[in-house]
């Protein structure tokens, strides 16, 4: 802590460094030019500086995103469309699962897809090749989708009642966790070639998800992944989380995944009916 002005900069804890290590302190005290309003009322203990005023704000940092997400959610619910936000780290087989799901479900229900990646339209191309409408969002340097991007992408899709919309988020197990897109549920996909302790390492995502899909189950005989342990870890973070084990490659477990989607779709349809009646 800076003894001149009391600005705390002690949030960084680095394992093995221990307490009492001098932390770096970015602002310059030689020409101490920031005004001194640390207390709630900005008690001016350094006289002679320009008169400062405090403006109370009390606003959620994500308020704008949450408002856009609420708008998307209302729009999707009114249309009777189930929206699922698929999240995972890169390489979990998310796109393979999605392409196969779209292919298998398109005869049973209207399916559409929003693809999020930093660059390329490869994934949307892959989905369109399966005969399913898809819109690609490229986030550039962005590490996650936000509700406004999804709102804009929705304008490029025709939503049909009783349908399912899959939103494939940017491959990243951290950043997408906090951004509500207006989906009915987040689905986190974890492959058995990853560490079974990922729920503990990236808890925010597992806390936010309703379902965890363990993919690449066909590789279980060849990898040391312990399914029970993984589920135990995930439930430590989120006691309510549901779990399915599948292989998007061989098709193992996919019927249970499709049943899960059907159940959510019925919920979405019931919601739309309630809205229409109300």
């Amino acid at each position: 802590m800076c003894t001149t002005c009391g600005c705390g900069r002690a949030e960084v804890t680095i394992e093995g460094e221990g307490h009492g290590t001098p932390h770096h302190h970015h602002h310059h005290h030689g020409d101490h030019d920031h005004s001194h309003g640390h207390g709630p009322l900005g008690a001016a203990h350094a006289p002679g500086l320009s008169e400062a005023r405090i403006i109370e704000v009390e606003e959620n940092i994500l308020a704008a995103n949450d408002a856009a997400a609420a708008h998307n959610r209302a729009h999707l619910e009114a249309a009777g469309v189930l929206a699922l936000n698929l999240v995972s780290s890169p390489g979990s087989g998310k796109t393979t699962l999605l392409a196969r799901t779209a292919q298998d479900l398109k005869a049973r229900m209207p399916v559409s897809v929003i693809e999020g990646d930093q660059q390329t339209s490869n994934d949307a191309d892959r989905i369109r090749a399966a005969g399913v409408p898809a819109v690609q969002i490229n986030t550039g340097k962005g590490c996650h989708l936000d509700a406004d991007m999804v709102h804009r992408a929705l304008h490029g899709l025709t939503l049909e009642a009783g349908g399912a919309l899959f939103i494939e988020n940017v491959g990243n197990l951290v950043c997408p966790a906090g951004f509500d897109l207006g989906e009915a549920a987040k689905v986190v996909i974890l492959s058995v070639t990853e560490g079974e302790d990922k729920p503990l390492k990236y808890p925010d995502m597992f806390a936010a998800a309703r379902l965890m899909v363990l993919n690449k189950a066909d590789l279980l005989p060849y990898v040391p992944f312990d399914v029970d342990k993984c589920v135990e870890y995930a439930r430590r973070i989120n006691p309510e989380i549901e779990v399915l084990t599948v292989s998007a490659l061989t098709g193992e477990g996919l019927d249970a995944w499709y049943d899960w989607i059907e159940a959510r779709r019925r919920e979405a349809g019931a919601g739309a009916a309630r809205q229409a009646a109300g």
Binding site: A52, I61, G178
Partner: peptide, 9 residues
Amino acid sequence: MRVKDLEVA
């Protein structure tokens, strides 16, 4: 995650 208040001049 909130913006609590601001100090302005």
